[in-house]
Design a protein around this nucleic acid. Structure first.
Lengths: 146, 146
DNA sequence: TATTGTTATACTCTATAACTATA
DNA sequence: TATAGTTATAGAGTATAACAATA
Protein backbone atom coordinates (compact mmCIF):
# COMPACT_ATOMS: atom_id res chain seq x y z
CA UNK A 1 0.00 0.00 0.00
CA UNK A 2 2.19 2.87 -1.17
CA UNK A 3 -0.15 5.53 0.11
CA UNK A 4 2.62 8.11 0.39
CA UNK A 5 2.73 8.83 -3.32
CA UNK A 6 -1.01 9.18 -3.92
CA UNK A 7 -1.34 11.28 -0.79
CA UNK A 8 0.60 14.12 -2.32
CA UNK A 9 -0.20 13.46 -5.96
CA UNK A 10 -1.70 16.74 -7.28
CA UNK A 11 -4.15 14.86 -9.47
CA UNK A 12 -5.48 12.88 -6.51
CA UNK A 13 -5.70 16.04 -4.45
CA UNK A 14 -7.75 17.72 -7.15
CA UNK A 15 -10.10 14.75 -7.36
CA UNK A 16 -10.55 14.75 -3.58
CA UNK A 17 -11.29 18.48 -3.74
CA UNK A 18 -13.80 17.91 -6.54
CA UNK A 19 -15.54 15.15 -4.60
CA UNK A 20 -15.89 17.58 -1.70
CA UNK A 21 -17.50 20.10 -4.05
CA UNK A 22 -19.90 17.52 -5.45
CA UNK A 23 -20.86 16.45 -1.94
CA UNK A 24 -21.48 20.05 -0.86
CA UNK A 25 -23.53 20.79 -3.96
CA UNK A 26 -25.58 17.61 -3.72
CA UNK A 27 -26.27 18.11 -0.02
CA UNK A 28 -27.30 21.69 -0.57
CA UNK A 29 -29.67 20.82 -3.39
CA UNK A 30 -31.17 18.00 -1.36
CA UNK A 31 -31.94 20.36 1.52
CA UNK A 32 -33.40 22.86 -0.92
CA UNK A 33 -35.60 20.24 -2.61
CA UNK A 34 -36.81 19.15 0.82
CA UNK A 35 -37.51 22.76 1.82
CA UNK A 36 -39.66 23.21 -1.28
CA UNK A 37 -41.93 20.57 0.22
CA UNK A 38 -41.65 22.22 3.65
CA UNK A 39 -39.54 19.34 4.91
CA UNK A 40 -36.17 19.34 6.62
CA UNK A 41 -33.39 17.19 5.19
CA UNK A 42 -33.79 14.61 7.95
CA UNK A 43 -37.54 14.41 7.41
CA UNK A 44 -37.03 13.97 3.66
CA UNK A 45 -34.50 11.19 4.22
CA UNK A 46 -36.85 9.31 6.54
CA UNK A 47 -39.77 9.74 4.17
CA UNK A 48 -37.67 8.43 1.27
CA UNK A 49 -36.58 5.45 3.37
CA UNK A 50 -40.13 4.57 4.33
CA UNK A 51 -41.33 4.97 0.74
CA UNK A 52 -39.11 2.02 -0.13
CA UNK A 53 -40.28 -0.11 2.79
CA UNK A 54 -42.08 0.41 6.13
CA UNK A 55 -39.63 0.11 9.01
CA UNK A 56 -39.54 -0.19 12.83
CA UNK A 57 -38.30 2.96 14.56
CA UNK A 58 -35.09 1.22 15.57
CA UNK A 59 -34.24 0.32 11.98
CA UNK A 60 -34.77 3.88 10.83
CA UNK A 61 -32.22 5.02 13.39
CA UNK A 62 -29.73 2.44 12.15
CA UNK A 63 -30.22 3.53 8.55
CA UNK A 64 -29.80 7.18 9.48
CA UNK A 65 -26.92 6.37 11.80
CA UNK A 66 -28.41 8.34 14.63
CA UNK A 67 -29.83 7.55 18.06
CA UNK A 68 -33.32 5.98 18.20
CA UNK A 69 -34.55 8.81 20.42
CA UNK A 70 -34.11 11.25 17.54
CA UNK A 71 -36.33 9.23 15.24
CA UNK A 72 -39.26 9.68 17.61
CA UNK A 73 -39.34 13.42 16.96
CA UNK A 74 -38.76 13.20 13.21
CA UNK A 75 -41.54 10.66 12.75
CA UNK A 76 -43.75 12.69 15.13
CA UNK A 77 -43.45 15.68 12.79
CA UNK A 78 -44.03 13.61 9.66
CA UNK A 79 -47.03 12.00 11.31
CA UNK A 80 -48.43 15.39 12.38
CA UNK A 81 -48.40 16.37 8.71
CA UNK A 82 -50.16 13.20 7.64
CA UNK A 83 -47.21 11.86 5.65
CA UNK A 84 -46.43 8.86 7.85
CA UNK A 85 -48.32 6.53 10.17
CA UNK A 86 -47.23 4.36 13.07
CA UNK A 87 -48.77 0.90 13.32
CA UNK A 88 -48.06 -1.64 16.06
CA UNK A 89 -46.37 -4.85 14.97
CA UNK A 90 -48.72 -7.76 15.83
CA UNK A 91 -45.84 -10.22 16.19
CA UNK A 92 -43.95 -8.10 18.73
CA UNK A 93 -45.99 -5.53 20.56
CA UNK A 94 -42.93 -3.51 21.53
CA UNK A 95 -42.29 -2.68 17.88
CA UNK A 96 -43.93 0.16 15.96
CA UNK A 97 -43.77 0.12 12.20
CA UNK A 98 -43.60 3.49 10.46
CA UNK A 99 -45.16 3.53 7.01
CA UNK A 100 -45.87 6.34 4.54
CA UNK A 101 -49.49 7.35 3.92
CA UNK A 102 -50.79 7.75 0.38
CA UNK A 103 -49.96 11.44 0.69
CA UNK A 104 -46.50 10.61 2.00
CA UNK A 105 -45.81 8.35 -0.97
CA UNK A 106 -46.88 11.11 -3.35
CA UNK A 107 -44.57 13.61 -1.62
CA UNK A 108 -41.68 11.13 -1.71
CA UNK A 109 -42.21 10.66 -5.44
CA UNK A 110 -42.23 14.40 -6.13
CA UNK A 111 -39.14 14.80 -3.97
CA UNK A 112 -37.33 12.14 -5.96
CA UNK A 113 -38.21 13.83 -9.24
CA UNK A 114 -36.97 17.20 -8.08
CA UNK A 115 -33.44 15.94 -7.46
CA UNK A 116 -32.19 16.89 -10.88
CA UNK A 117 -28.74 17.99 -9.86
CA UNK A 118 -27.08 14.64 -10.30
CA UNK A 119 -29.09 13.77 -13.38
CA UNK A 120 -28.59 16.91 -15.41
CA UNK A 121 -24.81 16.90 -15.84
CA UNK A 122 -24.93 13.15 -16.35
CA UNK A 123 -27.07 13.65 -19.42
CA UNK A 124 -24.08 15.22 -21.13
CA UNK A 125 -21.98 12.09 -20.71
CA UNK A 126 -21.81 9.28 -23.22
CA UNK A 127 -22.98 5.82 -22.19
CA UNK A 128 -19.35 4.72 -22.04
CA UNK A 129 -18.48 7.63 -19.74
CA UNK A 130 -21.42 6.83 -17.50
CA UNK A 131 -20.28 3.23 -17.23
CA UNK A 132 -16.80 4.41 -16.31
CA UNK A 133 -18.20 6.71 -13.66
CA UNK A 134 -20.43 3.95 -12.32
CA UNK A 135 -17.51 1.55 -11.96
CA UNK A 136 -15.39 4.16 -10.20
CA UNK A 137 -18.18 5.09 -7.81
CA UNK A 138 -18.91 1.45 -7.04
CA UNK A 139 -15.34 1.04 -5.91
CA UNK A 140 -15.62 4.11 -3.71
CA UNK A 141 -18.81 3.02 -2.01
CA UNK A 142 -17.94 -0.61 -1.49
CA UNK A 143 -20.41 -2.84 0.35
CA UNK A 144 -23.12 -1.37 2.49
CA UNK A 145 -25.69 -2.77 4.83
CA UNK A 146 -26.94 -0.87 7.86
CA UNK B 1 -32.05 18.39 -24.51
CA UNK B 2 -33.52 14.92 -24.65
CA UNK B 3 -33.77 14.57 -20.91
CA UNK B 4 -36.56 12.03 -21.15
CA UNK B 5 -34.25 9.21 -22.16
CA UNK B 6 -31.57 9.76 -19.56
CA UNK B 7 -34.18 10.30 -16.87
CA UNK B 8 -35.27 6.68 -17.05
CA UNK B 9 -32.01 5.19 -18.25
CA UNK B 10 -31.14 2.45 -15.70
CA UNK B 11 -27.45 3.25 -15.98
CA UNK B 12 -28.05 6.90 -15.15
CA UNK B 13 -30.33 5.92 -12.27
CA UNK B 14 -27.64 3.66 -10.85
CA UNK B 15 -25.05 6.42 -11.10
CA UNK B 16 -27.40 8.86 -9.36
CA UNK B 17 -27.96 6.29 -6.63
CA UNK B 18 -24.21 5.78 -6.27
CA UNK B 19 -23.58 9.50 -6.02
CA UNK B 20 -26.12 9.62 -3.21
CA UNK B 21 -24.22 6.84 -1.43
CA UNK B 22 -20.88 8.59 -1.88
CA UNK B 23 -22.36 11.82 -0.54
CA UNK B 24 -23.79 10.06 2.52
CA UNK B 25 -20.53 8.24 3.20
CA UNK B 26 -18.37 11.33 2.73
CA UNK B 27 -20.61 13.48 4.92
CA UNK B 28 -20.67 10.86 7.64
CA UNK B 29 -16.90 10.47 7.67
CA UNK B 30 -16.43 14.22 7.71
CA UNK B 31 -18.63 14.54 10.80
CA UNK B 32 -16.79 11.66 12.42
CA UNK B 33 -13.37 13.15 11.68
CA UNK B 34 -14.57 16.45 13.14
CA UNK B 35 -15.93 14.70 16.23
CA UNK B 36 -12.54 13.07 16.81
CA UNK B 37 -11.22 16.59 17.30
CA UNK B 38 -14.28 17.49 19.44
CA UNK B 39 -15.61 19.70 16.67
CA UNK B 40 -19.01 19.76 15.01
CA UNK B 41 -19.19 19.56 11.23
CA UNK B 42 -19.99 23.25 10.93
CA UNK B 43 -17.06 24.20 13.17
CA UNK B 44 -14.72 21.99 11.13
CA UNK B 45 -15.88 23.57 7.88
CA UNK B 46 -15.32 27.09 9.19
CA UNK B 47 -11.90 26.18 10.56
CA UNK B 48 -10.92 24.65 7.22
CA UNK B 49 -12.12 27.77 5.40
CA UNK B 50 -10.12 30.07 7.65
CA UNK B 51 -7.04 27.88 7.36
CA UNK B 52 -6.99 28.79 3.67
CA UNK B 53 -7.53 32.51 4.25
CA UNK B 54 -8.74 34.79 7.08
CA UNK B 55 -12.22 36.08 6.30
CA UNK B 56 -14.76 38.66 7.50
CA UNK B 57 -17.76 37.13 9.28
CA UNK B 58 -20.03 38.03 6.40
CA UNK B 59 -17.89 36.19 3.87
CA UNK B 60 -17.88 33.05 6.01
CA UNK B 61 -21.66 33.09 5.94
CA UNK B 62 -21.67 33.41 2.15
CA UNK B 63 -19.24 30.49 1.80
CA UNK B 64 -21.29 28.34 4.14
CA UNK B 65 -24.52 29.51 2.55
CA UNK B 66 -26.08 30.31 5.88
CA UNK B 67 -27.22 33.46 7.68
CA UNK B 68 -24.51 35.71 9.15
CA UNK B 69 -26.08 35.46 12.59
CA UNK B 70 -25.17 31.76 12.70
CA UNK B 71 -21.52 32.45 12.10
CA UNK B 72 -21.32 34.51 15.28
CA UNK B 73 -22.00 31.44 17.41
CA UNK B 74 -19.80 29.07 15.47
CA UNK B 75 -16.81 31.44 15.61
CA UNK B 76 -17.61 32.15 19.29
CA UNK B 77 -17.18 28.46 20.07
CA UNK B 78 -14.01 28.13 17.98
CA UNK B 79 -12.61 31.24 19.67
CA UNK B 80 -13.49 29.92 23.14
CA UNK B 81 -11.33 26.90 22.33
CA UNK B 82 -8.44 29.01 21.15
CA UNK B 83 -8.62 27.83 17.55
CA UNK B 84 -9.70 31.13 15.99
CA UNK B 85 -9.25 34.84 16.71
CA UNK B 86 -11.27 37.88 15.70
CA UNK B 87 -9.31 40.98 14.72
CA UNK B 88 -10.84 44.30 13.68
CA UNK B 89 -10.21 45.43 10.11
CA UNK B 90 -8.32 48.78 10.27
CA UNK B 91 -9.71 49.93 6.92
CA UNK B 92 -13.35 49.44 7.94
CA UNK B 93 -14.02 49.31 11.63
CA UNK B 94 -17.34 47.56 11.15
CA UNK B 95 -15.56 44.48 9.79
CA UNK B 96 -14.09 41.72 11.94
CA UNK B 97 -11.63 39.32 10.38
CA UNK B 98 -11.64 35.77 11.67
CA UNK B 99 -8.27 34.02 11.48
CA UNK B 100 -7.02 30.68 12.78
CA UNK B 101 -4.52 30.66 15.64
CA UNK B 102 -1.40 28.51 15.44
CA UNK B 103 -3.32 25.83 17.30
CA UNK B 104 -6.23 26.23 14.88
CA UNK B 105 -3.96 25.74 11.89
CA UNK B 106 -2.53 22.59 13.43
CA UNK B 107 -6.01 21.21 14.08
CA UNK B 108 -7.08 22.05 10.51
CA UNK B 109 -4.05 20.20 9.17
CA UNK B 110 -4.75 17.11 11.25
CA UNK B 111 -8.40 17.25 10.19
CA UNK B 112 -7.38 17.36 6.54
CA UNK B 113 -5.12 14.37 6.94
CA UNK B 114 -7.79 12.30 8.63
CA UNK B 115 -10.16 12.55 5.67
CA UNK B 116 -8.93 9.39 4.06
CA UNK B 117 -12.23 8.17 2.70
CA UNK B 118 -11.92 9.87 -0.67
CA UNK B 119 -8.21 9.24 -0.95
CA UNK B 120 -8.08 5.54 -0.16
CA UNK B 121 -10.19 4.12 -2.98
CA UNK B 122 -8.57 6.61 -5.34
CA UNK B 123 -5.20 5.04 -4.67
CA UNK B 124 -6.40 1.92 -6.46
CA UNK B 125 -7.08 3.82 -9.67
CA UNK B 126 -4.57 4.31 -12.45
CA UNK B 127 -3.48 7.82 -13.36
CA UNK B 128 -5.61 7.59 -16.49
CA UNK B 129 -8.65 6.58 -14.47
CA UNK B 130 -8.07 9.44 -12.06
CA UNK B 131 -7.90 11.88 -14.96
CA UNK B 132 -11.16 10.50 -16.33
CA UNK B 133 -12.80 10.86 -12.94
CA UNK B 134 -11.47 14.39 -12.56
CA UNK B 135 -12.89 15.44 -15.92
CA UNK B 136 -16.27 13.93 -15.15
CA UNK B 137 -16.44 15.58 -11.74
CA UNK B 138 -15.38 18.94 -13.16
CA UNK B 139 -18.35 18.82 -15.48
CA UNK B 140 -20.64 17.99 -12.59
CA UNK B 141 -19.44 20.80 -10.39
CA UNK B 142 -19.28 23.52 -13.00
CA UNK B 143 -18.22 27.02 -11.99
CA UNK B 144 -18.31 28.11 -8.40
CA UNK B 145 -17.84 31.37 -6.63
CA UNK B 146 -19.66 32.24 -3.43
C1' DT C 1 -32.83 -9.57 32.07
C1' DA C 2 -32.84 -7.60 27.53
C1' DT C 3 -35.11 -4.91 24.00
C1' DT C 4 -38.36 -1.25 21.84
C1' DG C 5 -39.85 3.02 21.87
C1' DT C 6 -40.38 7.15 24.43
C1' DT C 7 -39.44 11.13 27.48
C1' DA C 8 -36.40 14.60 29.60
C1' DT C 9 -32.41 17.36 29.11
C1' DA C 10 -28.79 19.96 27.10
C1' DC C 11 -26.16 21.55 23.14
C1' DT C 12 -25.57 23.01 18.35
C1' DC C 13 -27.25 24.67 13.98
C1' DT C 14 -30.63 27.19 11.58
C1' DA C 15 -33.56 31.37 10.02
C1' DT C 16 -35.89 35.71 11.29
C1' DA C 17 -36.06 40.07 13.24
C1' DA C 18 -34.33 43.81 15.89
C1' DC C 19 -30.37 46.20 17.62
C1' DT C 20 -25.29 48.74 17.57
C1' DA C 21 -21.64 50.77 15.52
C1' DT C 22 -19.78 52.18 11.88
C1' DA C 23 -19.80 53.97 6.87
C1' DT D 1 -29.39 55.49 4.53
C1' DA D 2 -26.92 51.37 4.08
C1' DT D 3 -23.76 47.79 5.84
C1' DA D 4 -21.16 44.55 9.34
C1' DG D 5 -21.69 42.15 13.20
C1' DT D 6 -24.39 40.92 17.08
C1' DT D 7 -28.30 39.61 20.09
C1' DA D 8 -32.78 37.50 20.97
C1' DT D 9 -35.89 34.03 19.86
C1' DA D 10 -37.85 29.83 18.26
C1' DG D 11 -37.67 25.37 15.78
C1' DA D 12 -35.18 21.30 14.52
C1' DG D 13 -31.52 17.71 14.89
C1' DT D 14 -28.33 15.43 17.91
C1' DA D 15 -26.54 12.47 21.97
C1' DT D 16 -27.15 10.86 26.73
C1' DA D 17 -29.66 8.99 30.38
C1' DA D 18 -33.73 7.26 32.50
C1' DC D 19 -38.28 5.17 31.96
C1' DA D 20 -42.56 2.08 30.61
C1' DA D 21 -44.16 -1.82 28.14
C1' DT D 22 -43.10 -6.08 26.30
C1' DA D 23 -40.20 -10.04 25.34
Amino acid sequence: MSMATSRTDPLTLEVVELIGSVVARYYEEYEQAAAEHSLTGAQARVLRLLSLEPLPMRRIARKLKCEPSNVTGIVDRLEARGLVERTPDPSDRRVKLAAPTRSGLATAARLRDSLDFAREPLAELSAQERRTLRDLLRRMVGDDDA
